[in-house]
Amino acid sequence: MYMVQAQKLSKRVASPEGTLTLLDAVDLEVVAGEACAIVGASGSGKSTLLGLLAGLDAPSSGRVLLDGVDLGTLDEDGRARLRAGRVGFVFQSFQLLPSLTALENVMLPLELTGRTAPGRTAREVLARVGLADRLRHYPSQLSGGEQQRVAIARAFASSPKILFADEPTGNLDQATGERVIDLIFSLNRERATTILLVTHDEAVAAHCHRRLHLAAGRLRDDSGPGADRQLDLPGAAGENI
């Protein structure tokens, strides 16, 4: 059962020097419950790949199936509906809404999918990330680590099937970053969430079952031969390119 499937995924953008190929016919399969890291140098197109897989942008060519649904057949709203409740996000720059309190930020995805008692659930998740006493604070009143913990709470609040994380420790100091990674992976274990994580930090990537390297628009499997077996899942064979 694939959670994410990418087939011949390409992204090209126009630039003054002609067409620039960011991603070049990338294939990728992530099974449910797997934690997969995409590593690569800055500017290698990691975030672009993540965005395409999550349906935040449309590819130039190729196909993405998210939870079995072909994103290419959906419009912007259709993709949004697909994400709601199924997909969680953690961004490098947190991307909290500055006009909402911590509690309101975490309630957002719950309310968007019309869950009952969003306030209670949000409180519970915020307590789980250790921010029970910061509910009424606005993002600007929180430290970077605290903001990222709110973002993690928001990502997990709706119990998504898959979490996309884009450099989740990029803006944090090392100690805080480690605590945030611990939090993400312990929540991942508790809730059996699939994780697709973009990072340039090898230590962060080491937490994942599988490590893929993106360079020159192409993806290469970096993980050792035993990596897949740790998961013991069928169909999780490495996609060597």
């Binding site: 999550a54 912007e76 709203d77 949004a80 994400r83 709601a84 997909v87 996000f89 995805p109 968007l112």
Partner: peptide, 9 residues
């Protein structure tokens, strides 16, 4: 951000 979280138009 709202779009990423699944908000519709």
């Amino acid at each position: 951000v709202m779009r990423a979280l699944g908000a519709t138009t």
